[in-house]
Design a binder for these strands. Structure first.
Length: 425
DNA sequence: TCTGGGGTCCTAGGACCC
DNA sequence: TCTGGGGTCCTAGGACCC
Protein backbone atom coordinates (compact mmCIF):
# COMPACT_ATOMS: atom_id res chain seq x y z
CA UNK A 1 0.00 0.00 0.00
CA UNK A 2 1.43 3.34 -0.95
CA UNK A 3 1.93 6.11 1.57
CA UNK A 4 1.14 9.72 0.83
CA UNK A 5 2.72 12.80 2.32
CA UNK A 6 0.19 15.50 3.12
CA UNK A 7 0.84 19.14 3.71
CA UNK A 8 -1.84 21.09 5.53
CA UNK A 9 -1.88 24.77 6.36
CA UNK A 10 -4.27 27.44 7.55
CA UNK A 11 -5.16 29.95 4.84
CA UNK A 12 -3.92 33.45 5.76
CA UNK A 13 -3.71 31.98 9.25
CA UNK A 14 -3.36 35.07 11.47
CA UNK A 15 -5.98 36.99 9.51
CA UNK A 16 -8.31 33.98 9.64
CA UNK A 17 -7.87 33.71 13.42
CA UNK A 18 -8.88 37.36 13.86
CA UNK A 19 -11.86 36.88 11.53
CA UNK A 20 -12.90 33.81 13.47
CA UNK A 21 -13.08 35.60 16.84
CA UNK A 22 -14.59 38.76 15.35
CA UNK A 23 -17.14 37.86 12.65
CA UNK A 24 -17.57 41.53 11.71
CA UNK A 25 -14.16 41.20 10.00
CA UNK A 26 -15.27 38.33 7.75
CA UNK A 27 -15.23 39.09 4.04
CA UNK A 28 -13.41 42.35 4.74
CA UNK A 29 -9.92 43.55 3.97
CA UNK A 30 -7.70 42.85 6.99
CA UNK A 31 -3.95 42.93 7.62
CA UNK A 32 -2.00 41.73 10.65
CA UNK A 33 1.16 43.51 11.76
CA UNK A 34 4.38 42.02 13.16
CA UNK A 35 5.65 42.86 16.65
CA UNK A 36 5.95 46.56 17.38
CA UNK A 37 3.37 47.06 14.60
CA UNK A 38 6.31 46.97 12.19
CA UNK A 39 5.49 45.02 9.02
CA UNK A 40 2.51 43.38 7.37
CA UNK A 41 2.76 39.65 8.05
CA UNK A 42 -0.69 38.33 7.15
CA UNK A 43 -3.40 39.48 4.74
CA UNK A 44 -6.98 38.39 4.23
CA UNK A 45 -7.93 37.12 0.76
CA UNK A 46 -9.48 40.50 -0.10
CA UNK A 47 -6.22 42.32 0.65
CA UNK A 48 -4.14 39.90 -1.45
CA UNK A 49 -6.32 40.77 -4.43
CA UNK A 50 -5.82 44.51 -3.90
CA UNK A 51 -2.06 44.18 -4.35
CA UNK A 52 -0.93 45.14 -0.83
CA UNK A 53 2.42 43.34 -0.48
CA UNK A 54 3.54 40.99 2.28
CA UNK A 55 6.40 41.90 4.63
CA UNK A 56 6.43 45.62 3.87
CA UNK A 57 6.65 48.25 6.66
CA UNK A 58 3.27 49.39 7.95
CA UNK A 59 4.19 53.09 8.15
CA UNK A 60 4.81 53.15 4.40
CA UNK A 61 1.39 51.68 3.57
CA UNK A 62 -0.74 53.21 6.32
CA UNK A 63 -2.36 55.80 4.09
CA UNK A 64 -3.09 53.34 1.31
CA UNK A 65 -4.68 50.90 3.77
CA UNK A 66 -6.81 53.72 5.15
CA UNK A 67 -7.95 54.72 1.69
CA UNK A 68 -8.93 51.15 0.82
CA UNK A 69 -10.79 50.85 4.12
CA UNK A 70 -8.66 47.90 5.22
CA UNK A 71 -8.79 46.89 8.90
CA UNK A 72 -5.51 46.54 10.82
CA UNK A 73 -4.65 44.35 13.83
CA UNK A 74 -1.49 43.91 15.92
CA UNK A 75 -0.33 40.31 16.08
CA UNK A 76 -1.81 38.37 18.99
CA UNK A 77 0.45 35.33 19.24
CA UNK A 78 -1.19 33.95 22.34
CA UNK A 79 -4.46 33.73 20.42
CA UNK A 80 -2.87 32.20 17.29
CA UNK A 81 -0.94 29.71 19.42
CA UNK A 82 -4.11 28.58 21.13
CA UNK A 83 -5.98 28.11 17.83
CA UNK A 84 -2.94 26.34 16.37
CA UNK A 85 -2.98 23.82 19.25
CA UNK A 86 -6.62 23.04 18.53
CA UNK A 87 -5.92 22.62 14.80
CA UNK A 88 -2.98 20.28 15.40
CA UNK A 89 -4.92 18.21 17.86
CA UNK A 90 -7.69 17.55 15.29
CA UNK A 91 -5.09 16.72 12.61
CA UNK A 92 -3.21 14.33 14.87
CA UNK A 93 -6.38 12.33 15.40
CA UNK A 94 -6.78 11.76 11.66
CA UNK A 95 -3.22 11.18 10.46
CA UNK A 96 -0.80 8.31 11.00
CA UNK A 97 2.14 10.62 11.68
CA UNK A 98 2.10 14.35 12.18
CA UNK A 99 4.97 16.81 12.04
CA UNK A 100 3.97 20.20 13.40
CA UNK A 101 6.10 22.34 11.13
CA UNK A 102 5.07 25.83 12.21
CA UNK A 103 2.23 27.63 13.96
CA UNK A 104 -0.02 27.26 10.89
CA UNK A 105 1.42 24.31 9.05
CA UNK A 106 1.90 20.56 9.38
CA UNK A 107 3.16 17.62 7.36
CA UNK A 108 1.45 14.27 7.76
CA UNK A 109 1.69 10.73 6.50
CA UNK A 110 -1.25 8.55 5.53
CA UNK A 111 -1.78 5.25 3.69
CA UNK A 112 -3.76 5.52 0.48
CA UNK A 113 -6.99 3.50 0.31
CA UNK A 114 -7.38 0.69 -2.24
CA UNK A 115 -8.72 3.00 -4.93
CA UNK A 116 -5.83 5.43 -4.17
CA UNK A 117 -8.32 8.27 -3.81
CA UNK A 118 -7.63 10.49 -0.81
CA UNK A 119 -10.08 13.21 -1.81
CA UNK A 120 -12.94 12.03 0.43
CA UNK A 121 -10.56 11.91 3.42
CA UNK A 122 -9.24 15.41 2.68
CA UNK A 123 -12.74 16.83 2.25
CA UNK A 124 -13.73 15.36 5.58
CA UNK A 125 -10.73 16.90 7.40
CA UNK A 126 -11.31 20.27 5.81
CA UNK A 127 -14.96 20.32 6.85
CA UNK A 128 -14.15 19.06 10.33
CA UNK A 129 -11.58 21.78 10.97
CA UNK A 130 -13.84 24.51 9.67
CA UNK A 131 -16.76 23.28 11.70
CA UNK A 132 -14.78 22.93 14.93
CA UNK A 133 -12.44 25.89 14.91
CA UNK A 134 -13.66 28.10 12.07
CA UNK A 135 -10.40 28.25 10.13
CA UNK A 136 -10.17 27.44 6.40
CA UNK A 137 -7.30 25.10 5.51
CA UNK A 138 -5.66 23.86 2.32
CA UNK A 139 -4.47 20.30 1.76
CA UNK A 140 -1.71 19.28 -0.65
CA UNK A 141 -1.00 15.61 -1.31
CA UNK A 142 2.10 14.08 -2.89
CA UNK A 143 4.79 11.44 -2.46
CA UNK A 144 7.18 13.70 -0.56
CA UNK A 145 7.38 17.09 1.13
CA UNK A 146 8.43 19.17 -1.88
CA UNK A 147 5.65 17.65 -3.99
CA UNK A 148 3.00 18.11 -1.30
CA UNK A 149 4.00 21.77 -0.93
CA UNK A 150 3.51 22.22 -4.67
CA UNK A 151 0.18 20.40 -4.47
CA UNK A 152 -0.91 22.72 -1.67
CA UNK A 153 0.06 25.71 -3.78
CA UNK A 154 -2.10 24.41 -6.63
CA UNK A 155 -4.92 23.66 -4.19
CA UNK A 156 -4.94 27.33 -3.20
CA UNK A 157 -4.34 28.97 -6.55
CA UNK A 158 -6.91 27.11 -8.68
CA UNK A 159 -10.36 27.77 -7.30
CA UNK A 160 -12.01 24.62 -8.72
CA UNK A 161 -9.75 22.52 -6.48
CA UNK A 162 -11.64 23.76 -3.42
CA UNK A 163 -8.54 23.76 -1.25
CA UNK A 164 -7.47 20.19 -2.04
CA UNK A 165 -5.06 18.86 -4.65
CA UNK A 166 -3.44 15.45 -5.05
CA UNK A 167 -0.24 15.53 -7.08
CA UNK A 168 0.58 11.91 -6.31
CA UNK A 169 -2.05 10.42 -8.62
CA UNK A 170 -1.40 12.78 -11.55
CA UNK A 171 0.20 10.82 -14.41
CA UNK A 172 1.60 13.74 -16.38
CA UNK A 173 2.93 16.14 -13.79
CA UNK A 174 4.74 18.40 -16.25
CA UNK A 175 1.80 20.69 -16.93
CA UNK A 176 1.51 21.44 -13.21
CA UNK A 177 5.23 21.73 -12.53
CA UNK A 178 5.43 24.21 -15.41
CA UNK A 179 2.99 26.43 -13.49
CA UNK A 180 5.20 26.64 -10.39
CA UNK A 181 7.64 29.51 -10.61
CA UNK A 182 11.15 28.74 -9.40
CA UNK A 183 10.78 31.10 -6.41
CA UNK A 184 7.76 29.10 -5.22
CA UNK A 185 9.63 25.80 -4.97
CA UNK A 186 10.10 24.87 -1.30
CA UNK A 187 13.77 25.29 -0.37
CA UNK A 188 14.59 27.69 -3.20
CA UNK A 189 15.05 31.15 -1.74
CA UNK A 190 16.20 34.55 -3.00
CA UNK A 191 19.83 33.65 -3.71
CA UNK A 192 19.16 30.30 -5.28
CA UNK A 193 16.30 31.50 -7.48
CA UNK A 194 18.41 34.35 -8.86
CA UNK A 195 21.12 31.88 -9.82
CA UNK A 196 18.56 29.57 -11.45
CA UNK A 197 16.98 32.46 -13.37
CA UNK A 198 20.39 33.51 -14.68
CA UNK A 199 20.77 29.99 -16.05
CA UNK A 200 17.34 30.14 -17.69
CA UNK A 201 15.63 27.87 -15.15
CA UNK A 202 12.31 29.54 -14.42
CA UNK A 203 9.96 26.86 -13.04
CA UNK A 204 9.80 23.60 -11.10
CA UNK A 205 9.74 21.40 -14.22
CA UNK A 206 12.91 22.99 -15.58
CA UNK A 207 14.62 22.60 -12.21
CA UNK A 208 13.68 18.91 -12.12
CA UNK A 209 15.14 18.36 -15.60
CA UNK A 210 18.34 20.39 -15.33
CA UNK A 211 21.77 18.77 -15.14
CA UNK A 212 22.31 17.22 -11.73
CA UNK A 213 26.06 17.99 -11.71
CA UNK A 214 25.42 21.68 -12.19
CA UNK A 215 23.19 21.86 -9.11
CA UNK A 216 25.52 19.66 -7.09
CA UNK A 217 28.50 21.90 -7.86
CA UNK A 218 26.68 25.10 -6.87
CA UNK A 219 24.38 24.06 -4.00
CA UNK A 220 25.65 20.67 -2.88
CA UNK A 221 23.41 18.21 -1.12
CA UNK A 222 20.76 20.88 -0.41
CA UNK A 223 20.10 21.48 -4.11
CA UNK A 224 20.22 17.79 -5.01
CA UNK A 225 17.60 16.96 -2.40
CA UNK A 226 15.16 19.46 -3.89
CA UNK A 227 15.75 18.14 -7.41
CA UNK A 228 15.38 14.51 -6.33
CA UNK A 229 12.13 15.25 -4.53
CA UNK A 230 10.83 16.93 -7.70
CA UNK A 231 11.67 13.66 -9.48
CA UNK A 232 9.57 11.78 -6.92
CA UNK A 233 12.17 10.41 -4.50
CA UNK A 234 11.90 10.87 -0.74
CA UNK A 235 14.89 12.82 0.61
CA UNK A 236 13.49 15.02 3.38
CA UNK A 237 12.04 12.78 6.09
CA UNK A 238 8.96 13.44 8.18
CA UNK A 239 10.01 14.49 11.66
CA UNK A 240 7.20 13.69 14.06
CA UNK A 241 9.36 14.35 17.12
CA UNK A 242 9.59 18.08 16.57
CA UNK A 243 8.98 19.04 20.20
CA UNK A 244 12.65 18.73 21.15
CA UNK A 245 14.09 22.15 20.35
CA UNK A 246 17.73 22.59 19.35
CA UNK A 247 17.66 26.27 20.17
CA UNK A 248 15.32 28.67 21.95
CA UNK A 249 15.44 32.40 21.39
CA UNK A 250 13.43 35.38 22.56
CA UNK A 251 14.01 38.84 21.14
CA UNK A 252 12.01 42.03 20.65
CA UNK A 253 12.37 45.48 19.15
CA UNK A 254 11.76 48.38 21.53
CA UNK A 255 9.07 50.94 20.78
CA UNK A 256 11.80 53.63 21.07
CA UNK A 257 15.62 53.46 21.31
CA UNK A 258 17.04 52.92 24.78
CA UNK A 259 20.51 53.95 25.94
CA UNK A 260 21.06 52.93 29.53
CA UNK A 261 22.11 49.74 31.21
CA UNK A 262 19.13 49.58 33.58
CA UNK A 263 16.59 49.46 30.78
CA UNK A 264 18.62 46.96 28.78
CA UNK A 265 18.92 44.74 31.88
CA UNK A 266 15.16 44.91 32.45
CA UNK A 267 14.49 43.88 28.87
CA UNK A 268 17.00 41.02 28.97
CA UNK A 269 15.57 39.77 32.29
CA UNK A 270 12.11 39.75 30.78
CA UNK A 271 13.26 37.72 27.74
CA UNK A 272 15.26 35.31 29.93
CA UNK A 273 12.15 34.53 31.97
CA UNK A 274 10.13 33.82 28.81
CA UNK A 275 12.93 31.61 27.44
CA UNK A 276 13.31 29.71 30.75
CA UNK A 277 9.57 29.02 30.83
CA UNK A 278 9.86 27.64 27.27
CA UNK A 279 12.78 25.41 28.31
CA UNK A 280 10.70 23.98 31.16
CA UNK A 281 7.67 23.55 28.89
CA UNK A 282 9.76 21.37 26.56
CA UNK A 283 11.49 19.63 29.52
CA UNK A 284 14.87 20.83 28.38
CA UNK A 285 17.99 22.37 29.90
CA UNK A 286 20.37 24.82 28.28
CA UNK A 287 24.12 24.83 28.63
CA UNK A 288 25.02 27.83 26.52
CA UNK A 289 23.54 31.29 26.74
CA UNK A 290 24.00 34.17 24.31
CA UNK A 291 22.56 37.63 24.71
CA UNK A 292 22.71 40.34 22.09
CA UNK A 293 21.60 43.87 21.36
CA UNK A 294 21.72 46.09 18.32
CA UNK A 295 20.83 49.53 17.03
CA UNK A 296 18.59 50.06 14.00
CA UNK A 297 19.67 48.17 10.88
CA UNK A 298 18.74 51.25 8.92
CA UNK A 299 20.85 53.71 10.93
CA UNK A 300 24.19 54.97 9.59
CA UNK A 301 26.25 53.86 12.59
CA UNK A 302 24.86 50.36 12.99
CA UNK A 303 26.00 48.70 16.20
CA UNK A 304 25.66 45.13 17.36
CA UNK A 305 27.19 43.32 20.27
CA UNK A 306 26.78 39.91 21.84
CA UNK A 307 28.26 37.77 24.57
CA UNK A 308 28.08 34.08 25.30
CA UNK A 309 28.49 32.08 28.45
CA UNK A 310 28.71 28.36 29.02
CA UNK A 311 26.77 27.13 32.03
CA UNK A 312 28.78 24.82 34.24
CA UNK A 313 25.66 22.82 35.02
CA UNK A 314 22.94 22.72 32.34
CA UNK A 315 19.88 24.47 33.74
CA UNK A 316 16.38 25.76 33.12
CA UNK A 317 16.15 27.59 36.42
CA UNK A 318 15.11 31.23 36.15
CA UNK A 319 17.26 32.57 39.00
CA UNK A 320 20.45 30.82 37.89
CA UNK A 321 20.12 31.93 34.27
CA UNK A 322 18.98 35.45 35.21
CA UNK A 323 22.15 35.97 37.26
CA UNK A 324 24.34 34.85 34.38
CA UNK A 325 22.45 36.98 31.86
CA UNK A 326 22.89 40.17 33.89
CA UNK A 327 26.68 39.69 33.89
CA UNK A 328 26.57 39.27 30.11
CA UNK A 329 24.37 42.35 29.73
CA UNK A 330 27.02 44.47 31.44
CA UNK A 331 29.57 43.09 29.01
CA UNK A 332 27.70 43.98 25.84
CA UNK A 333 26.41 47.38 26.93
CA UNK A 334 27.93 50.55 25.42
CA UNK A 335 26.51 53.83 26.78
CA UNK A 336 26.54 55.87 23.60
CA UNK A 337 24.38 53.65 21.46
CA UNK A 338 20.71 53.96 20.69
CA UNK A 339 19.64 50.38 21.09
CA UNK A 340 16.48 49.30 19.28
CA UNK A 341 16.47 45.58 19.91
CA UNK A 342 17.78 42.95 22.29
CA UNK A 343 17.39 39.24 22.75
CA UNK A 344 18.58 35.99 24.27
CA UNK A 345 19.47 32.72 22.58
CA UNK A 346 19.76 29.43 24.43
CA UNK A 347 21.85 26.75 22.76
CA UNK A 348 23.21 23.27 23.43
CA UNK A 349 19.88 22.09 24.78
CA UNK A 350 19.38 18.70 26.34
CA UNK A 351 16.60 16.75 27.97
CA UNK A 352 16.06 17.40 31.69
CA UNK A 353 15.69 13.66 32.30
CA UNK A 354 19.43 13.28 32.74
CA UNK A 355 20.08 16.35 34.84
CA UNK A 356 23.66 16.47 36.05
CA UNK A 357 24.23 17.73 39.58
CA UNK A 358 27.45 18.96 41.15
CA UNK A 359 29.24 16.08 42.79
CA UNK A 360 30.53 17.91 45.86
CA UNK A 361 28.05 20.73 46.06
CA UNK A 362 25.80 19.33 48.76
CA UNK A 363 25.31 22.73 50.38
CA UNK A 364 23.41 24.10 47.40
CA UNK A 365 21.34 21.09 46.47
CA UNK A 366 18.53 21.93 48.86
CA UNK A 367 18.21 25.47 47.55
CA UNK A 368 18.35 24.08 43.98
CA UNK A 369 15.30 22.02 44.72
CA UNK A 370 13.56 25.03 46.24
CA UNK A 371 14.29 27.09 43.12
CA UNK A 372 12.91 24.29 40.94
CA UNK A 373 9.77 24.22 43.03
CA UNK A 374 9.39 27.99 42.76
CA UNK A 375 9.74 27.84 38.95
CA UNK A 376 7.14 25.12 38.63
CA UNK A 377 4.69 27.07 40.80
CA UNK A 378 5.17 30.27 38.77
CA UNK A 379 4.74 28.29 35.52
CA UNK A 380 1.51 26.69 36.65
CA UNK A 381 0.03 29.98 37.87
CA UNK A 382 0.93 31.71 34.60
CA UNK A 383 -0.47 28.81 32.61
CA UNK A 384 -3.74 28.99 34.48
CA UNK A 385 -4.23 32.75 34.67
CA UNK A 386 -2.32 33.94 31.60
CA UNK A 387 1.35 34.66 30.98
CA UNK A 388 2.75 37.50 33.14
CA UNK A 389 0.32 36.93 36.02
CA UNK A 390 3.32 36.33 38.25
CA UNK A 391 6.76 37.68 37.44
CA UNK A 392 10.17 38.55 38.87
CA UNK A 393 10.87 42.06 40.09
CA UNK A 394 13.95 42.29 37.84
CA UNK A 395 11.66 42.22 34.82
CA UNK A 396 8.87 44.73 35.21
CA UNK A 397 6.92 43.94 32.11
CA UNK A 398 4.92 46.84 30.77
CA UNK A 399 7.68 49.41 30.38
CA UNK A 400 7.38 52.32 27.98
CA UNK A 401 9.79 50.70 25.55
CA UNK A 402 7.82 47.43 25.34
CA UNK A 403 6.84 46.78 21.72
CA UNK A 404 3.71 48.71 20.81
CA UNK A 405 0.65 46.72 19.87
CA UNK A 406 -1.86 49.48 19.38
CA UNK A 407 -4.44 47.41 17.55
CA UNK A 408 -4.42 44.25 19.64
CA UNK A 409 -7.50 42.03 19.65
CA UNK A 410 -8.76 40.37 22.82
CA UNK A 411 -7.77 36.85 23.80
CA UNK A 412 -11.27 35.52 23.32
CA UNK A 413 -10.43 31.82 23.28
CA UNK A 414 -8.56 31.67 26.61
CA UNK A 415 -9.61 34.43 29.01
CA UNK A 416 -13.02 33.98 30.53
CA UNK A 417 -13.70 37.72 30.74
CA UNK A 418 -13.00 38.10 27.00
CA UNK A 419 -15.49 35.51 25.80
CA UNK A 420 -17.98 37.25 23.50
CA UNK A 421 -21.46 37.82 24.91
CA UNK A 422 -24.38 37.03 22.63
CA UNK A 423 -27.77 38.57 23.35
CA UNK A 424 -30.83 36.62 22.27
CA UNK A 425 -34.38 37.86 22.24
C1' DT B 1 9.84 59.34 13.30
C1' DC B 2 8.25 54.42 12.25
C1' DT B 3 11.33 48.28 8.71
C1' DG B 4 9.30 41.17 13.17
C1' DG B 5 10.52 36.99 15.44
C1' DG B 6 11.76 32.14 15.86
C1' DG B 7 13.56 28.27 13.94
C1' DT B 8 16.59 24.48 10.97
C1' DC B 9 20.34 22.72 8.26
C1' DC B 10 24.79 22.90 5.75
C1' DT B 11 29.56 24.16 4.94
C1' DA B 12 34.12 26.15 5.15
C1' DG B 13 37.78 26.78 7.84
C1' DG B 14 40.30 26.81 12.21
C1' DA B 15 42.07 24.18 16.16
C1' DC B 16 43.81 20.19 17.68
C1' DC B 17 45.63 15.53 17.72
C1' DC B 18 48.70 11.84 16.37
C1' DT C 1 69.34 23.15 3.39
C1' DC C 2 65.32 20.07 3.70
C1' DT C 3 59.69 20.87 8.45
C1' DG C 4 53.49 16.11 6.64
C1' DG C 5 49.15 14.92 6.32
C1' DG C 6 44.90 13.02 7.60
C1' DG C 7 41.18 12.79 10.78
C1' DT C 8 37.83 14.88 14.01
C1' DC C 9 35.48 18.35 16.34
C1' DC C 10 33.69 22.90 16.77
C1' DT C 11 31.89 27.31 15.32
C1' DA C 12 30.42 31.27 12.64
C1' DG C 13 27.97 32.55 8.99
C1' DG C 14 24.92 31.82 5.22
C1' DA C 15 20.78 30.19 3.25
C1' DC C 16 16.43 28.72 3.84
C1' DC C 17 11.67 28.15 6.16
C1' DC C 18 7.12 30.08 8.36
Amino acid sequence: MSKAIIQIDGNNFYASCEQMIDPSLRGKGLVILSNNDGCIISRSAEVRKSGIPMGKPYFKLKQKLNKLNIEVRSSNYELYGDISNRLMSILSEHCEKLEVYSIDEAFACITRPKDQNLNPWAKHIRALVYQNIGIPISIGIGVNKVQSKIANHIAKSIEENAGIFDMGIIQNKDQYLNLIEIEKVWGVGVKMSKWFRRRGITNARELRDMKREEIKYKFGIVGIRIQNELKGEICIPLNSNSLQRKQISVSRSFSYPISNLEELSLAISHYILIACAKLRKYNQLCSELTIFTNSSLYSRDYFRNDATSKLEIPSNNSVTILKESLLLTKKIFRPYNKLTKAGVIMKKLQSDKYQQRMLFNTKDSKSDLQLEYLDSKIDSINKKYGSNTLNWASSVIEKDWSPSRKKLSKLRTKCLENIPIVFCN
